[in-house]
């Protein structure tokens, strides 16, 4: 169970949100500047709330009264907007970057599985500037999941893609979630995408949740 309660003063408003979730897909939906990325960064430990808590299965990532856990110790996957692939490393090195040497053997099976599910095995020797937008998105997903995170944060993961690739990648995300069964928190601007992906949708405005929509369990991609 992931429990979040965050309060943080930003320049134009105070971010004040709270929710609880299991291994589902939660969508943060709202206009630019409503605090969505700050929420993701707080969960990743890249910024700290002024007060509140973030706990996963009872383990505190952040609590007002304690020193926050560093991003390195949170074991999360974070897919950044525009992917933030390391431009000087091959796809293979990007994917293996977070894999601990001790766990290399154990992880290699998982990475093989990821490469096969995402269909990116043929890209391993290429550099990020040599692959397309959709391929970058898949590589970034593989990289984020290669470390076996306890939950996955996705900041507008599909915004840079054309419509066709976007639908393809939405289906892939749903498929990956079915396989990995960890909490996914997705930020998006696109209502159709929010409805297709989200088990729960939180509508944000100026740092507050103005509406919560729970969907019934769903939605295997049509082609499966």
């Amino acid at each position: 169970m992931l429990k979040v309660q965050i309060r943080k003063k930003l320049s134009h408003f105070t971010l004040d949100v709270s929710w609880e979730m299991d291994n589902e897909i939660l969508v943060l939906f709202g206009p630019s500047g409503s605090g969505k990325t700050t929420i993701l960064n707080s969960m990743a430990g890249l910024t700290h709330p002024d007060s509140g808590f973030i706990t996963l299965n009872g383990r505190a990532f952040f609590h007002t009264q304690h020193k926050p856990l560093s991003p390195q110790k949170r074991n999360i996957g974070y897919l950044f907007q525009d992917y933030a692939l390391f431009p000087h490393m091959t796809v293979e090195k990007n994917i293996h970057y977070g894999v601990k040497k001790k766990a290399a053997n154990h992880s290699s099976f998982r990475i093989e599985q990821l490469l096969s599910v995402l269909g990116i095995g043929h890209l391993l020797k290429k550099y990020p500037h040599q692959i397309s937008g959709g391929e970058k998105q898949r590589v970034a997903l593989a990289r984020a999941l290669a470390t076996e995170p306890s939950f996955l944060l996705l900041d507008e993961p599909l915004s840079a893609l054309d419509q066709e690739t976007r639908i393809e990648c939405q289906n892939e995300l749903l498929r990956l979630h079915q396989i990995w069964r960890i909490p996914f928190i997705i930020v998006t601007h696109d209502m159709n995408e929010a409805e297709k992906l989200g088990d729960t949708i939180l509508f944000l405005e100026k740092g507050k949740i103005i509406q919560t929509v729970n969907h019934p369990p769903k939605k295997w991609p049509a082609d499966h």
């Binding site: 990743a44 991003p71 390195q72 974070y78 990289r143």
Partner: peptide, 25 residues
């Protein structure tokens, strides 16, 4: 800065972030 942050979220120490990301780039 997202490149360095991406490395941090993947568990890289500040030392490793510097030598593998910041310095070469």
């Amino acid at each position: 800065p997202r490149l360095e942050n991406a490395a941090r979220t993947m568990g890289a120490s500040e030392w490793r972030v510097f030598w593998t990301i910041s310095f070469p780039l």
